[in-house]
């Protein structure tokens, strides 16, 4: 850390010596969260946190063409959070006098709970650092992205972490990946749009805080023991609690349908409208179940299903 710090300090000393290049960055998206809640830490402080359900089938790409002393702009122009994070990254790297255009190309649907703005911000942060020949650690990225967008998802980490998404810090590093899942994801409200910051954070009761304590322990066990069954149960339980705060249409129909097909569970976007059904990739009846679930979703009017693996 110290070496990197020194290098970075020297960067800003003479902008004329700075070697610039076109920076590139990329980030995957997510499909809602496996878990989202509010957990009491050992000092009885309540901390909002989440574990994303990562989805590599959707992604954002950023290209940053740096110009010294130029104004910083973003394309498309509405990606203001990505612009802000680019600014923060350049400032962190003592390259605040660098400007230019950051261009975002994304396949992540916006305002659905797929983490489009987080994906844009991560891609932009990587591209900005790349343009000045630097790399950010995942932790740095986590705190910068949260600073830029107030609340973010956690897929800047290449491993499973319990992320305090409004503080930008890791509450628990599981030091390994989520167990592998087969996921059928879809949008429960094709026309609706969710602005993450416009709806207030869920006001959980003390009873729900206690549930989250149990769920977080189960989550740790599921990840450490590579127990997809338990992971599915945690996702379902988290979805049920949060259904009280941001209800998904057809929630109970979808849940009972998933149960009938003996799926592992369901996962929801805790600020969004997407939802998914989780399956075990080693399930011998996997193909049958996928067909069955897709047919049942079609009966509920859901035709657009994204099938992916974590």
């Amino acid at each position: 850390m110290e070496v990197i710090g020194n290098q970075r300090a020297s960067l800003g000393q003479d902008i004329h010596d700075l070697l610039l290049r076109t920076g590139k960055g990329q980030s995957i998206g997510q499909f809602g969260e496996i878990f989202q809640g509010q957990i009491e830490d050992q000092f009885q402080r309540l901390r909002r946190c989440l574990v994303s359900l990562p989805c590599s089938s959707i992604y954002s790409r950023a290209t940053f063409a740096p110009i010294k002393y130029a104004r910083l702009r973003v394309r498309p122009a509405h990606k203001q959070k990505a612009l802000k994070v680019t600014q923060l990254v350049l400032a962190r790297l003592n390259a605040a006098r660098i400007g230019g255009t950051i261009t975002i190309e994304s396949t992540v649907p916006e305002a659905k709970g797929c983490g489009s703005s987080t994906a844009d911000c991560i891609a932009a942060a990587i591209a900005a650092a790349d343009a000045v020949g630097q790399q950010l650690s995942e932790e740095e990225m986590g705190s910068l992205v949260v600073e830029g967008e107030v609340a973010s998802d956690n897929f800047m980490f290449q491993r499973a972490v319990l992320f305090a998404h409004r503080e930008g810090i890791v509450l628990e590093d599981y030091a390994r990946n989520l167990p592998k899942l087969e996921v059928l994801g879809f949008d429960t409200a094709q026309d609706a749009i969710v602005e993450t910051l416009k709806h207030p954070p869920a006001a959980y009761s003390w009873r729900q805080h206690q549930s989250f304590c149990t769920l977080s322990v189960a989550l740790r066990r599921a990840i450490w023991e590579d127990d997809v069954g338990l992971l599915g149960r945690v996702a379902t339980a988290s979805a049920f609690i949060n259904q009280l705060f941001l209800p998904k249409p057809m929630f109970s129909e979808i849940h009972s349908m998933a149960e009938r097909s003996a799926a592992l569970g369901i996962a929801v976007a805790h600020s969004g409208t997407v939802m998914s059904i989780l399956l075990d990739p080693t399930d011998r009846r996997l193909e049958n179940k996928v067909e069955e679930i897709k047919a049942n979703l079609l009966n509920l009017g859901i035709s657009n299903v994204l099938h992916f693996q974590t």
Partner: peptide, 8 residues
């Protein structure tokens, strides 16, 4: 809740 968590 703590006890359920301990059992799990």
């Amino acid at each position: 809740g703590f006890f359920a968590a301990q059992l799990i």
